[in-house]
């Protein structure tokens, strides 16, 4: 059964909004299996909201999409990069620091494609979910349109379920006949 890489869709939706990315929103609703009750605000409002939440804002950036803001580990960049390297990935374009939200989602999608569930599970538990939950809380506190808090909240729930699925070993890694 061919798998659909939901991490990529999440990464698209959490990146700066444009028509192409917004077209994926219906797909997102199907993935998380919930229909967004509010109507999707026009693109311009979304762009302002996105900039206010994740880029630059007054008085200060309420929900910076960087893990280092939420985790107070000492040399976080080293930890993340060594984790990437341990499963054979190195950052090619240094447009963002290694703890950028989209980079981590893309990394997860790579693991998903490699079916490296063990690493995916470890990354979700040990690094991604702990800070993503705090990030979602900050988004919910500051999002006026409610669109991004919907997306973040549903992604958070979906990923937690995903974590359980991985724990079940339903789609486990070693192919061994029982």
């Amino acid at each position: 059964m061919e798998k659909i890489n939901f991490y990529l869709i999440f990464a698209n939706l959490l990146d700066y909004p444009d028509e192409k990315k917004l077209s994926l929103f219906e797909r997102f609703e199907n993935i998380v299996g919930l229909h967004y009750t509010g109507e999707i605000p026009p693109l311009e409002n979304l762009e302002i909201e996105y900039t206010k939440l994740f880029v630059n804002a007054h008085p200060y950036l309420p929900a910076p999409p960087f893990a280092s803001v939420y985790l107070n580990s000492e040399n976080l960049y080293d930890e993340i990069e060594s984790f990437y390297q341990s499963v054979g990935y190195g950052i090619e374009t240094r447009e963002f620091p290694p703890d950028y939200l989209i980079y981590e989602l893309v990394f997860l999608s790579n693991l998903f494609n490699d079916e490296n569930y063990k690493a995916e599970r470890k990354f979700l538990i040990s690094h991604f979910l702990p800070w993503f939950e705090k990030f979602v809380k900050k988004v919910k506190e500051n999002d006026e349109t409610g669109f991004y808090s919907f997306i973040c909240e549903k992604i958070n729930i979906f990923l937690n379920n995903r974590l359980k699925e991985l724990k079940d070993g339903e789609t486990n890694l070693q192919k061994r006949v029982f």
């Binding site: 890489n5 990437y84 390297q85 499963v87 054979g88 990935y89 190195g90 950052i91 090619e92």
Partner: peptide, 22 residues
């Protein structure tokens, strides 16, 4: 439906043999 319109961000990461990245 296939993955129409999804940017695949393939430019972000580079594949290495595990442990020897970069």
């Amino acid at each position: 439906a296939g993955a129409i319109g999804v940017t695949d961000y393939s430019y972000v990461f580079k594949k290495f043999p595990p442990g020897k990245a970069g």
